[in-house]
Each structure stands twice: as structure tokens, then as C-alpha cells.
């Protein structure tokens, strides 16, 4: 594979709080994919959460505190920042500069960080120039072909305008059969605290998304946001439907796919 000549050799990973706690395997897949592409991964250990829950909830004072903290953590290195989440990347890219616009110290810093922050698929395609990842081990699963559908999460699609990068990457993986679900670009109903505060509406929206996924008759739903994927996974599990959810990086991951077993969750 030939990458762009000016492709960066280092990147800082902002793993996100949900990958940290709920889907570490997605984060490890991101690390392996980046390293396979020759990118040295830095993981600033003091990172926590970007503050989006507070920002979307309207608690902007709290959100500002978390934004400033995260900016401090990320500004220690000059390397570009890779975020394996459309909505968290959107937070860093668009909302940090807005939230801190009138702050003389952090306003300019937010702009500077915004300019070198990329969502994972965007970093691969637009920054590194990856077109095809060939070494996927999807074919080593028990199936010959993995039938999957792609859920374009809202902040990735309409916040960051990333439409093609994840699809191009998936199209390049051997053994993947992409099936389009109906109304794919529609929201799954997660919306952060919306799912709890407006649980009735959120549940109705999720029901439509689950129907669409089921109608596609796939084994896996792939997305670039662990938040939406956990929401969908929770709904599928409640329905007793055996469809898995995976972050894009887990499909691109060159390491053998590890089956998640129950023991891994037991205390």
C-alpha cells in the first residue's frame, strides 16, 4: 500500500470515554490498524471525556471545563489527533471553538486543535490516503462472507460531512458483502441524554432503525460511533436478535478477530 507522501507518521489517539469503558476492543483495533499503516500511536494517558454529554445537555459551564481540560491534554503533542467517533470528533472540531470563542486563552487553542483533529475513517482516507486495507481477517471467521450493513451516524454524516470514507474502506475489505438498509441515514434515536430524558421518542426511533437493520438480513452492523452502536446493540439484544455491532476499525483490524465471550464481562 502506498500512502500519501506527506502522510503523518505519528498520531495522538483520543479514545473516547465509551471506548475506554464499554468497547475497548474497538480502541485496540484502531491502534492495530494505525500501526499497521506505519503510524506510531501516542495515547495521552490523562485523557478522559470530551464533554459532549454536558454540552448537549445544556450544561455549558461544565462542558467548558471539560473542553479546556481536554485541550490541555491534547496540546502537549503536535501530532494530529485521531478520534474513533464521529460525534466526539465533531465536538472537538466544531463545538470546542464555538464554546470557547470568547476565551482569550483557550479560544485560539481550540481553533488550533480543531484544525488537526480527524475522525478515524477520515484520517485513514483523507490524511493517510488509504484506499484499500487488504489484510483483514474477516475471511477467517466461521463464515466465508460477512454480510454487513453500514449505519452512518448523524454527527459523522451531517456534522463532519463524512459520507464516503467509511464506505470506501469497507468496500476494500475482502469477504465483506455490504447490504444497504432502508433509510440508512436516519437517526437511531440515541442523542445522548435524549435517550433517557425523552425515552419514549428515542425508543420509537430506535424501533424503526432496528426494523431497518433486521430487514437487511445481515450478521453485523458497522458504524463509526460506539455510542450509536451500543444503542443499537442494546435494542437488538432486548429483541433477542443475533446481529452483532462493530466499529469500522474492528472490520479493518488485521489481527484475528477475537470472539467476545461472557467471561470477559464477569467480575
Amino acid at each position: 500500500m502506498t500512502l500519501k507522501s506527506d502522510a503523518p507518521r505519528r498520531a495522538q489517539l483520543f479514545a473516547t470515554c465509551l471506548i475506554e469503558t464499554l468497547r475497548p476492543e474497538a480502541g485496540m483495533a484502531v491502534v492495530r490498524v494505525l500501526e499497521k499503516l506505519g503510524v506510531t500511536v501516542e495515547f495521552p494517558d490523562a485523557q478522559t471525556c470530551c464533554g459532549q454529554p454536558a454540552f448537549n445537555g445544556g450544561a455549558w459551564q461544565d462542558a467548558r471545563a471539560m473542553a479546556k481540560y481536554t485541550l490541555d491534554v491534547l496540546s502537549k503533542s503536535k501530532a494530529p489527533i485521531v478520534v474513533p467517533s464521529g460525534s466526539c470528533a465533531d465536538m472537538l472540531v466544531h463545538h470546542y471553538p464555538e464554546l470557547l470563542a470568547s476565551d482569550p486563552q483557550y479560544g485560539p487553542l481550540a481553533q488550533e486543535i480543531s484544525a488537526r483533529t480527524y475522525e478515524f475513517s477520515q484520517f485513514l482516507v483523507d490524511v493517510l490516503g488509504v484506499t484499500k486495507i487488504s489484510a483483514s481477517d474477516v475471511s477467517r471467521l466461521t463464515h466465508d462472507v460477512l454480510r454487513l450493513t453500514y449505519h452512518p451516524s448523524c454527527h459523522l454524516l451531517r456534522g463532519l460531512n463524512i459520507t464516503q470514507a467509511p464506505r470506501e474502506l469497507l468496500a476494500g475489505v475482502e469477504g465483506v458483502n455490504m447490504v444497504e438498509m432502508p433509510s440508512a441515514t436516519e437517526c437511531c434515536g440515541f442523542g445522548g441524554l435524549f435517550a433517557i430524558k425523552m425515552a419514549d421518542i428515542s425508543s420509537a426511533m430506535l424501533a424503526r432503525k432496528l426494523d431497518a437493520i433486521e430487514s437487511a438480513q445481515v450478521e453485523t452492523v458497522v458504524g463509526c460511533d460506539v455510542s450509536c452502536l451500543l444503542h443499537i446493540a442494546g435494542g437488538l439484544h432486548r429483541r433477542g436478535v443475533n446481529i452483532t455491532t462493530k466499529h469500522l476499525a474492528e472490520i479493518l483490524d488485521p489481527a484475528p478477530n477475537i470472539q467476545i465471550t461472557e467471561e470477559m464481562y464477569l467480575p
Partner: peptide, 15 residues
């Protein structure tokens, strides 16, 4: 109300 919630991973990403 309409979805199950996953238990946290035994080993965090950081770990």
C-alpha cells in the same frame, strides 16, 4: 425501557 445496557468491559481500553 426499550434496550439493554452493556456491562463495562472487564479490562478498560487504557489497561
Amino acid at each position: 425501557q426499550s434496550r439493554d445496557f452493556p456491562a463495562f468491559a472487564k479490562k478498560s481500553f487504557r489497561a
